[in-house]
Design a protein around this nucleic acid. Structure first.
Lengths: 197, 197
DNA sequence: TTATTAAGTTGAACTTGTTCAACTATTTTC
DNA sequence: GAAAATAGTTGAACAAGTTCAACTTAATAA
């Protein structure tokens, strides 16, 4: 990446943080200094099920899929992450237990990564970081609660259209099979849904 | 409540907090001083849909149901809260927007309540509070992700047995209709499931 | 204690979504 | 650019879950 591109990357991260909390320029710089730009090629994994997560990431460019594979071999997609989204496996990262998640790039992607020990240090040295992740986690929590309710109250067809309307930029980057695994239905059935409408 | 009972209540809260983070006795006392013991009678609401949430609560005794009612009039249960659980509507509490949730006591219950402005002050004065709620939110987030995956990978029958085995003390306090609204199925179907097994 | 309301049961017809299998179209790889 | 792998489509039979309606049982209130 050029020097210019790297500066732009950090600006994206800074805007994201400022969107969550009020923070001083100094703190913002300290935080950003711990993130390193990294390129991840299409199909490569930032994390694989069974291994221990050592980095947290912020997506600059590209697209990722966060999913698990169950005993029957079925893939289950938790979410997709594009520009301006965070990549985390909180459980594995915090408790250093083997992850139950895979994080895979769906196209050539750029991320800012922070090392686990660096992040733990940041929690100590910059109190705003606690607040940042408290606020982010709480927002995410609300979103997950809403998604579960949506799953209970809407048919697969309705959920598909909701997803396609809400995240058109993501839909254009992923396969129908991946959408189906996000919606919790078979890809055959998604195909039939799309034909209907 | 007797003086003795009140002391015991605060000990339960303190244990809960210490279970989440390392914290000094002073901070722990400061936090607890902002919580007030309150009695809520069976069927009474701590929060109703459309109103703005002003308190956060910690359950000492009894049982609560947190649910929404959708346009069709169907009830959808997010979760049940018994002793040692927290009662929150993060969205309404943080952003002071009308709540989409109801929090109702299913039996005569006791809670420790903290006022919104008091909690905001606590975030400022006791940094450990940021950490406490960051850690709590992250744990909750992981639990919600797992629940969604479970919903996608298991049948209603399997989910019912998982719930009944994991929370036997809750199951004994609630009706099958409420369980069904938690599982995202009709109470008629739950009745058929129970007959089978 | 009775009257009333709410909870739970059951069956039949229906809708939603799955499974399996065979096929076509599209990407990827060498 | 051909071969191989993966993604998407379609149909038929099936399983999971819903709806409605009628009924029984249990809880609640006057």
């Amino acid at each position: 990446m050029t020097h210019q591109a790297i500066l732009m990357s950090y600006n994206l991260l800074k805007e994201n943080i400022k969107n969550n909390i009020q923070i001083s320029t100094e703190d913002l710089d300290t935080i950003c200094n711990h993130f390193n730009p990294t390129v991840i090629k299409k199909k490569d994994f930032l994390l694989t099920q069974g291994s221990i997560y050592k980095y947290e990431g912020f997506v600059l460019e590209g697209c990722f899929r966060i999913f698990t594979i169950d005993k029957k071999g079925n893939e289950n997609t938790l979410y997709f992450a594009t520009k301006d989204w965070w990549l985390m496996d909180i459980d594995s990262f915090m408790n250093q237990v083997p992850s139950s998640l895979n994080i895979q790039a769906l196209e050539d992607s750029k991320v800012l990564l922070i090392d686990r020990t660096d992040k733990l240090k940041l929690y100590e040295s910059v109190p705003a970081v606690e607040k940042l992740f408290r606020v982010m986690s709480q927002k995410a929590l609300v979103a997950w609660q809403r998604r579960l309710i949506r799953n209970h109250t809407h048919t697969a067809k309705e959920r598909y259209h909701y997803f396609a309307n809400t995240y058109p930029n993501i839909v254009s980057k992923i396969t129908d099979k991946q959408i189906a695994s996000y919606l919790g239905i078979t890809h055959e059935f998604l195909s039939k849904i799309k034909k209907q409408s």
